[in-house]
Nucleic acid binder design. Structure first.
Length: 875
RNA sequence: GGGCGCGUAGCUCAGGGGUAGAGCGUCGCCCUUACAAGGCGAAUGUCGGCGGUUCGAAACCGUCCGCGCCCACCA
């Protein structure tokens, strides 16, 4: 006891580490130091092999949520490890202009001032958005710094900046010239609130309650009944369609019938699209307001009559003009009822209704002139790149979704009737000229020339992100060095929005080179009960709150630990706290090591000279390095974090460190050797942990080694050292100690209470560990008048404890009886197996051996337990 | 209507033909001089139901029940 104290005071100075782990103080100064030293700067001229990952650009509108923190943790861990492995690493930062989202936010700001964007005009409005972007864009960068994202800030890009805008124009022009972009009038998804077209995937469908009404069309003999949920569109009907084989309506096909509430008559057409089994088998056809009807209209050369404007307000002349679509619906049904044309009253009907993904307004299909990307050849190439194995998808199950999508893709509507975004580079001349400008072309200045007023879908520019950020279309050194990207890490929710588009554009613009080799799709962050996080539900968490409270390391570790491939990640505050506790544990263990002279200086002592304890931990360390590497290569973040957690805490801190205490007390060469081994184990463990928990490991490692930074340290290699004999020996030691501890606990002995004991270890593997056993179990030398009242034979050795009559015999009998029953059950089970000929004939040898071993052990246990029972004093 | 996935300890989830695992939580003892943000010990599950394959099934197959997600132009 006193010796130990002396040892600390005399030979080793107090470590520079504060006694208490305070995450905020540890993390505070590190990040800017890393940036200032240029660790994260990617050098295109470097000889090192490149490793590139782009940030999925967050919307400038916002701040980062836990989903970003999660994604960034994964990307940062990957790139930090690669950097340590000697790659020239580029973690590309930047933001997305997020067309509709941003415009909506700024319009809301304006609304507070009682203005609309039209009050400002286009130019002033766009100016206002830029202003807003410049004011709020810094938030995200601050959060990324706090998280520890090792990005190259000098390369930060924005999808609307000058260079990227040039890239957008270049690609548009190329696609246009290749006739892969065209302009056409089609039915599109229209948001009557955002006042723009949106693409198919920007529509979210939900099962909504509607009402189906049946309306009688026609006069006299020539009538039929149609069913609809959208009565208001009847004003734009230009036909009724029936199935060609439907005998009920055969006599009407080709005839014209009267359209109620109007003075028009419309034809009855035969079209196989109609399902005779559904409803009445007759469908009203409104080509201007329904995509199916539009196609029927095309087939039968029907006119398109639009009856609503961009606000979904009725424009058709008559009593309904000016009514909103919903008001019009009930008004029209009312009018029809008055005419006696409602043959079956409204009945509830659940059907799929599309909503704008931005504002949830019900989408109105609308006939409109828009710009389109002809996706056929692009999507084919995007599918093939994955099919051919040029691009790998993790987890692989997601491939199927990807194929389903790219193989069944409709043309992509890329024009938006917004002001914020990349303006379509097409000009119209006074004599009907249409000119698409490239990035270097002069804008036409003559009388009557105007530019297309639409902007591009925001995903058009994000589709170029893997190469536009590197300077494309210029053939820059960076493009040469860092394209294609190594891996893309993003959520499965934007597989179609973003990943597939990058694949299409990357392959197209970069001569068939896919934008990345590997796609890693992660899940969504959820709350601790697995519920989706949302502001309205009140379970959304600001990552900064938890980082302030527990540290970025703790948040990162928790997120990494939950990252099972492709699955959603639940997270709760308790878990972050648990990770903070882990960081604290690492902190304290390292402090202990430093106080006891752990070192990384000099060669490791030769294995022959090392104790079994040292050989065991070095053997385990090698295995863990290999294991962690394998998990990294397979993007198994949860597995690698968990492996490190258990190795560090259970094996290094709870066992190895405890065992070194005895060695350090005894001193001598063994202690010197152990100082070096302990230093080695911490050195490697901190390196392995660094990509996930960069801050605390940096502080501890630089203190331990005196080196500049862990960020640029070399990633550990598996030493290849394995010592199975030592591993078994220490395992036995652990079993003995656990067994005796359990006995002590059952006996109600206080942990600190010393007990006189006699150990008989001669001839067993445990002989060299007597001092450690005594220390860990608080066993004293037997002393005078030693009277053993409990003897535990374990692994061939015995531990006799002098409990001087205080033993709780009843408790011990109970425990032993339980153990005995378990062992007997084990024997019965093993016997049954080993006498089963079918089993013996078919089971592999190692299984049979295992069962035999189990039998032997159970038999030995029974002997031991009987001996213990016999040795117990009478109750 | 198609496709994918999931139902394992109180909660959240790993595992995956050969004696049921982790984190958090629970119970008991302890401020043992790195750490109470800690140590030691303990309890807890007919691995959704039913069939089948197998020497052996929580795992493989079939089926049913319950959940989730993605896709789809059925008025």
């Amino acid at each position: 006891m006193t010796e130990n104290t002396q040892h600390q005071n005399s030979s080793v100075p107090e470590p520079e580490l504060p006694k208490t782990y305070a995450p905020a103080e540890v993390e505070g100064p590190l990040y800017e130091r890393w940036v200032d030293r240029g660790y994260f700067a990617a050098d295109a001229k470097s000889e090192k092999p490149p490793y590139t990952v782009v940030i999925p650009p967050p919307n400038v509108t916002g701040s980062l949520h836990l989903g970003h923190a999660f994604e960034h943790t994964l990307i940062d861990a990957l790139t930090r490890r690669k950097r340590m492995q000697g790659f020239e690493t580029l973690w590309q930062p930047g933001m997305d202009h997020a067309g509709i989202a941003t415009q909506n936010v700024v319009e809301r700001e304006l609304a507070k001032e009682g203005k609309s964007r039209h009050d400002l005009g286009r130019e002033a409005f766009v100016e206002r958005v830029w202003q807003w972007k410049n004011e709020s864009g810094g938030q995200i960068s601050g959060q990324m710094r706090r998280l520890g994202d090792g990005v190259d800030w000098d390369r930060e890009r924005f999808t609307m900046d000058e260079g990227l805008s040039q890239a957008v124009k270049t690609l548009f022009k190329k696609l246009y010239d290749d006739e892969l972009i065209y302009r056409a009038e089609r039915i599109i998804n229209w948001c009557p609130r955002c006042l723009t077209a949106i693409s198919d995937i920007e529509v979210e469908y939900s099962e909504d309650e509607g009402e189906l009404v049946s309306i009688k069309y026609g006069e006299g003999e020539e009538t039929l009944v149609v069913a609809t949920t959208r009565a208001e569109t009847m004003l734009g009907d230009t036909a009724v369609a029936v199935h060609p084989d439907d005998e009920r309506y055969a006599h009407l096909i080709g005839k014209r019938i009267k359209l109620p509430l109007t003075d028009r008559s419309i034809p009855v057409v035969a079209d196989t699209h109609v399902d005779p089994e559904f409803g009445t088998g007759a469908v009203k056809v409104t080509p201007a307001h329904d995509p199916n009807d539009f196609e029927i209209g095309q087939r039968h050369d029907l006119p398109n009559i639009a009856v609503m404007d961009e606000h979904a307000v009725i424009t058709a002349h008559g009593p309904f003009q000016g009514l909103d679509r919903l008001e019009a619906r009930s008004a029209i049904v009312g009018a029809l009822r008055a005419e006696g044309r409602i043959v079956a009253e409204k009945r509830p009907y659940t059907h799929s209704v599309g909503h704008c993904s931005r504002c949830k307004t019900t989408v109105e299909p609308r006939l409109s002139m828009q710009w389109w990307v002809k996706v056929g050849p692009l999507a084919k190439a995007a599918g093939d790149a994955v099919r051919d194995g040029k691009v790998k998808v993790h987890p692989q199950e997601m491939e199927k979704r990807y194929f389903d999508w790219v193989d069944n893709l409709h043309d992509w509507c890329i024009s938006r009737q917004l002001w914020w975004g990349h303006r379509i580079p097409v000009w119209y001349g006074p004599n009907g000229e249409v000119v698409c400008l490239g990035p270097d072309d002069e804008e036409p200045t003559g009388e009557g020339w105007t530019q297309d007023t639409d902007v591009l879908d925001t995903w058009f520019s994000s589709g170029l992100w893997p190469f536009s950020t590197l300077g494309w279309p210029e053939q820059t050194e960076s493009l040469e060095k860092f394209y294609p990207n190594s891996v893309l890490v993003t959520g499965y929710d934007i597989l179609f929005f973003w990943v597939a588009r990058m694949m299409m554009f990357g392959l197209y613009a970069m001569d068939g080179t896919p934008p990345f080799h590997t796609i890693v799709l992660h899940g969504m962050v959820r709350d601790q009960f697995g519920k989706k996080m949302s502001k309205s539900f009140g379970n959304a968490v600001n990552p900064l709150d938890w980082m302030d409270k527990y540290g970025s390391d703790a948040l990162r570790f928790t997120l990494a630990r939950g990252a099972n491939p492709g699955t959603d990640v639940p997270i709760g505050e308790d878990w972050v706290q648990g990770s903070r506790n882990f960081a604290n544990k690492i902190w304290n263990a390292t402090r202990f090591a430093l106080m006891n002279g752990a070192t990384v200086k000099g060669e490791l002592p030769p294995a022959e000279r090392l104790s079994a304890t040292d050989r065991w931990i070095l053997s385990r360390l090698g295995s863990v390095v290999a294991e962690v590497d394998a998990y990294y290569e397979d993007y198994q973040f949860a597995k690698l974090s968990d492996a490190l957690f258990h190795f560090a805490w259970d094996e290094v801190f709870d066992w190895y460190v405890e065992l070194t205490k005895t060695t350090f007390q005894e001193g001598g060469q063994a202690a010197e050797d152990t100082k070096r081994v302990l230093g080695e184990v911490l050195d490697v463990t901190l390196k392995l942990l660094h990509p996930v928990v960069p801050f605390v490991t940096e502080t501890l490692w630089t203190t331990l080694t005196g080196n500049e930074s862990l960020v640029i340290a070399e990633w550990p290699a598996d030493s290849g050292f394995r010592d199975e004999a030592a591993e078994r020996e220490i395992e036995t030691l652990q079993q003995v100690i656990t067994e005796v501890r359990r006995f002590r606990s059952d006996q109600g002995l206080q942990p600190g209470q010393k007990v006189p004991a006699r150990l008989t270890l001669d001839g067993t593997a445990l002989a060299p560990h007597e001092a450690a056993i005594r220390q860990l179990l608080r066993l004293q030398p037997e002393g005078e008048g030693f009277a053993a009242t409990a003897t535990l034979p374990v692994s061939g050795a015995t531990v006799a404890l002098d409990l001087s009559g205080t033993i709780d015999v009843a408790a011990e009998r109970k425990r032993l009886a339980k153990d005995l029953a378990a062992a007997e059950k084990e024997i019965t089970a093993a016997d049954a197996k080993l006498t089963n000929e079918a089993f013996l004939a078919k089971a592999p040898d190692h299984v049979v051996d295992k069962i035999r071993g189990r039998l032997t052990k159970a038999e030995a246990d029974i002997e031991r337990i009987k001996g213990q029972l016999d040795a117990l004093p009478a109750a």
